[in-house]
Amino acid sequence: MATDKKVNPSSQMVGIDKLIHEPARYNIMAHLYVIQSADFLSLQRQTGLTWGNLSSHLSKLEKAAYIAMEKEFIGKKPHTMLHLTDEGRTAFDNYRVSMKKVLKRLPV
């Protein structure tokens, strides 16, 4: 009797960082990964997220210590810049590696 090996997609996802796996948060993390830092407005423009949506995702990422906020002055105006923490950068690297592995294992 031939055995038909079926891959359970959910079992493949073990080890994937669920916090980053959400598309909007992945988008935010990817944007912050390729630059040094950005303010809220530029992140909103680049990701296309609404103000409230972005704010809520940023809170979650900040809670996980993946991103950090820094107040600085541009001219005389105070400005909040966001950047990935070392932890966030490592988490994003790990997420990409894990996803590559999952995608490789998936049957074509």
Partner: peptide, 14 residues
């Protein structure tokens, strides 16, 4: 800038 926001690019890009 007030409509686009501020980005600091990576040290390599800088």
């Amino acid at each position: 800038i007030p409509r686009l926001g501020v980005v600091k690019f990576s040290p390599e890009r800088q």
